[in-house]
Design a protein around this nucleic acid. Structure first.
Lengths: 356, 356
DNA sequence: CTGAAAGCGCTAACAA
DNA sequence: TTGTTAGCGCTTTCAG
């Protein structure tokens, strides 16, 4: 009620009022067993009444512990990150840690400023949740001398801790789903060639095809860039291939959105003429036309896991350096069995086919 | 290069090596004029070489300033927030402030924990960037006794500082655009009835209609909920209205996405049979089918402005309590002139009309 | 221009 | 069980 902001009350103020020493107050407030339970209770009540709020700076100065974790993100604009951050924060809070936000927007100057801020506030650990961390950034982060956990890092950093989703397994999941649907000619529209996730998804695609005894026409693997344009190019290229695929596995949902658009522009019906499957399960995937079947990454769990790993490192415990969390198929409406006809129906006949 | 993490170097360490007192080092490092420029330079070089990093906790203990701003967000999952946070962070960084993240996910317990964390770390100010802040939350935040700036707050808090986009003006923008296109029968699919933004957009809609000398059939104003389902219901209702509208202004883009879907399901072509306009310009608006014409809120600017207002408050300067930033029309492809025919063409004729 | 000394709010020996 | 004392790393008087 009467908590005013003017000069905050300190343990000394409480001590004076309670007629004890400030160390007794300190002990009582932290639940030390070295205080008479009755005085302890009295002190706690008094502290509450006086509106006492511990000063984190003072405490950390003497304990040399700050209970702060640096959360490094390239950009919040990545719709992917929200759930990850939620997971991180939840575990952090439970363990009494706070989150310091450091976004860099891929600007080197900002990155340096962010690292400096993290250093000055003496973060105890760092979680990097950004697909692409600047080449210079990571070394500077390491110079902080605190444990670092990377989430879904695109480059391989063997010397560091990381949590990632199992892109390869997710890709296998997607492609074998298409195989079960009856497809035999399945294409892959790739993402950024340097991205690790792209290499893994490609590997998963090839593995699933091989497992199904299906051969892969090299023309079915086309380049993309992880954005809608990439999906559009991809579909256009794919439409010219002699043995035209009946299903397309896309590097990610943004690519799939472009693919959907290009397919429509070419007069193809999804999924009747072409099945399209994405990867990521972004918020928007449920609202495309048709709603996008995709592979969901365990975002929230990755966040939780990363923070748990960091916690273990902070307690000096051993923990596996690289964790992989499985992905999960999300069936919506952009995939279906292939049409009986070997060749997709020409666009000008499409309208007819819609009449039952 | 040999920056190791073992016991950090302090100004005393530097002082010893430089043969001066630690206060001289302190002065030199902060660029005080009370030091011989030459020794100052020498000290700074030495500090850099020794890998000195100031200890924010120690400094803030004596200055009683923390340079920390609390950033309160309900959830990062709102795609809307990313740009706002970017703006906030940019200004904060420029001014030497750091951001402390406090998300609550609308969980009262989490909210309390978050407030406590903010209090203990002695944030100097708070920015609340969440459409809906818990009824209990705000009073607790105010008990912190530090300036608070709300961004796009949905309830009216007359006693507090706020930055918001001008929803009414944005709505006028949207509706008069439809009027210019030639529409006279324009509907509004509303958002959450309690939301301030909804009331303002409705007011803007009515204002623009009146300005254009157009009467509003009450049946053209239908309920929604700010999510795609709301848009779907809305369209279904609107399709049954005797004087059927030729254009629909939606409370937000998510509503518009639902509207788009329902229109398609009803066999209507957008924009030929029905123009649809959204609000917010979420990332996804560019990728709907057809790409959504909408009204963009100045997200980034709101973030910057909010932080600037906070800065001014922190410096004890006067600043307007409530700021409104204008919205801006983003033309894409979901709006067009109304068809000459008074009644939309029946679905089975649509295919024909596409061939010219 | 520089140094000595005090103290920010707290924790943690060490005594009593 | 409690109080006394020292000190975390820094800024800031106050004297020189």
């Amino acid at each position: 009620m009467g908590r005013r902001a003017s000069r905050r009350v300190s343990i000394k103020d409480i001590a004076r009022k309670a007629g004890v020493s400030h160390s007794t107050v300190s002990r009582a407030l932290r639940g030390s067993p070295l205080v008479n339970p009755r005085t302890a209770e009295r002190i706690r009540r008094l502290a509450a009444r006086m509106g006492y709020v511990p000063n984190a700076a003072a405490r950390s100065l003497v304990t040399t512990r700050t209970s702060i974790i640096g959360l490094v993100i390239t950009t919040l604009a990545d719709p992917f990150l929200a759930e990850i951050v939620r997971g991180v924060e939840e575990v952090a809070l439970e363990a009494g840690y706070r989150l310091f936000l450091a976004t860099s927007n891929a600007d080197p100057e900002r990155e340096m400023a962010a690292v400096r801020a993290l250093a000055e506030s003496r973060v105890e650990g760092v979680i990097v949740a950004s697909s692409r961390v600047g080449d210079l950034y990571l070394p500077h982060l390491e110079a902080l001398g605190v444990p670092i956990v990377l989430i879904n890092n695109q480059r391989e950093e063997p010397f560091i801790y990381s949590v990632a989703s199992d892109s390869r397994q997710g890709a296998v999941e997607a492609v074998s789903y298409l195989v079960r649907l009856g497809h035999t000619r399945i294409a892959y529209i790739a993402g950024p060639p340097t991205a690790r996730s792209n290499r893994e998804r490609l590997a998963g695609y090839q593995e699933a095809m091989a497992q199904a005894g299906l051969s892969v026409d090299p023309a079915w693997i086309v380049e993309g860039n992880g954005r809608p344009e990439g999906g559009e190019w991809g579909i256009r290229r794919l439409l010219e291939v002699p043995r035209r695929p009946t299903a397309v596995f896309c590097y990610n949902d943004m690519t799939a959105i472009g693919a959907l658009r290009a397919a429509r522009a070419a007069g193809l019906c999804v999924p009747e003429d072409l099945s399209i499957i994405g990867f990521d399960d972004i918020l928007f995937a449920a609202y495309t036309e048709p709603p996008l079947t995709t592979v969901a990454q365990p975002k929230y769990e990755m966040g939780r896991t990363a923070m748990s790993v960091l916690l273990r490192l902070l307690q000096g415990e051993r923990t596996p350096a690289h964790l992989r969390l499985p992905c999960r198929l999300v069936e919506r409406a952009s995939c279906g069995p292939p049409l009986e006809s070997a060749v997709p129906i020409a666009p000008h006949l499409l309208a007819e086919r819609r009449l039952p």
